[in-house]
Write a protein that binds this DNA or RNA. Structure first.
Lengths: 201, 201
DNA sequence: TGTACATCAGTGAACGCGCGTTCACTGATGTAC
DNA sequence: TGTACATCAGTGAACGCGCGTTCACTGATGTAC
């Protein structure tokens, strides 16, 4: 397909894939331009032709992480019957990703991407992941005392509530603070911990 | 008080304090043996007499972080009247710490301390911080449908629920994902986001 | 169809940097007698 | 009270390492004519 000499031909995606592999095998500390390039078998200055320095490469890797995060959650959601089970599926999917791809999860939510507005691809990918939660939250009615809010604010509040909850659980698991699956299943079922949502169907 | 020559006299706490200062001023990346020692004005090999390498020093700094985290939350709690306001005070205290001491928060929950059982001081300090939440959770009744649990499990579940929630909010703020205090107050009051607890008084 | 040339993609040596650790040392302190 | 000596705490030079970036380069590809 490609001559194996000199020009790689598909270096950009190959570098991102190498980054994913290193995250799985060596963790976040192993991610350097030199290590990534070496894994592809290319000079460590080659990535400069495709990415804006190490930061740009990390940003692209994180974006791919968000896309996979979204895709895995989305698949779990669609495999579940509508209603409460879809809520659970989304939560479990979010948390499962954080446990199984710990280093990637940490990269994705690393404060090094603070000015995310300037990194369009990353922002888009992150939004797609949040969008899955948003889709789930749409079907929820969260009953609570207190003043009435506009439908928009009400929806935003429900999304954020869901995100806070699921991200908290995922973070604690990821940080080794929460024993997850000590003997194959969570200490407490996510379902049990979930606050009282009113869900359709 | 101490001769300023050669022997520092109080090097151990001075190094920890220097670590706290660097976290505030330069962030987690600035924390190295050389930087910490330099800030105290001591040779960069001196810390070896008091700590087991960089990891041991970081562990001691994180432990101090947990102690301050616990103390600040505890103070906020005690300043509030019993009941719902104490729950809010604890939550706000937890989140405020994560926002105001971002780098320290990240160090405290860094997965580099995964085998925390082997670091007694750190484990004790972390427990003291969790203990404040536990004290709050004791006063809560969390009504929910589902099977009855033993009082011990019920208490554990409530504590974890509270922790998951507050840690999620704190993490998102810390990671720059959640706009906190855009114009002086949170986008949504923690109180509003809080699930329906039944609280005494 | 062939030639000239611009552009693109990857090379590899070199640079300077900060890091943690080691090592033989030395100055200060404390204790035994 | 004084002396000898062990122990403790800090020094500073040296080591090797991996890092991101720069630079002049070169091999391959594509395009104009």
């Amino acid at each position: 397909m490609h001559k194996k000499n000199y020009h790689h031909g598909d270096l950009k995606p190959a570098l991102i894939q190498a980054g994913l592999d290193i995250l799985e095998e060596e963790g976040l500390e192993g991610l350097s331009m030199r290590a990534i390039a070496a894994r592809v078998g290319v000079s460590h200055t080659a990535p400069k032709n495709h990415f804006d320095g190490l930061h740009g490469l990390l940003s692209a890797i994180a974006a791919e992480g968000f896309r996979r995060h979204a895709a895995e959650m989305q698949k779990d959601v669609e495999d579940a019957p509508p209603g409460r089970e879809r809520l659970d599926a989304a939560c479990v999917g979010y948390i499962k990703f954080a446990r199984e791809h710990g280093a990637m999860f940490r990269l994705m939510f690393s404060p090094r991407f603070n000015k995310k507005a300037e990194e369009e691809e990353l922002a888009t990918a992150a939004a797609s992941s949040y969008g899955v939660l948003r889709g789930i939250a749409e079907g929820l009615n969260w009953q609570r005392p207190g003043p009435e809010l506009s439908p928009e604010l009400e929806a935003m509040r429900t999304e954020l509530m869901l995100w806070v909850f699921v991200h908290g659980y995922a973070s604690l698991v990821n940080e080794g603070q929460m024993p997850a699956d000590p003997d194959g299943k969570p200490l407490f079922d996510v379902l049990e911990l979930m606050p009282q949502f009113d869900y359709g169907n």
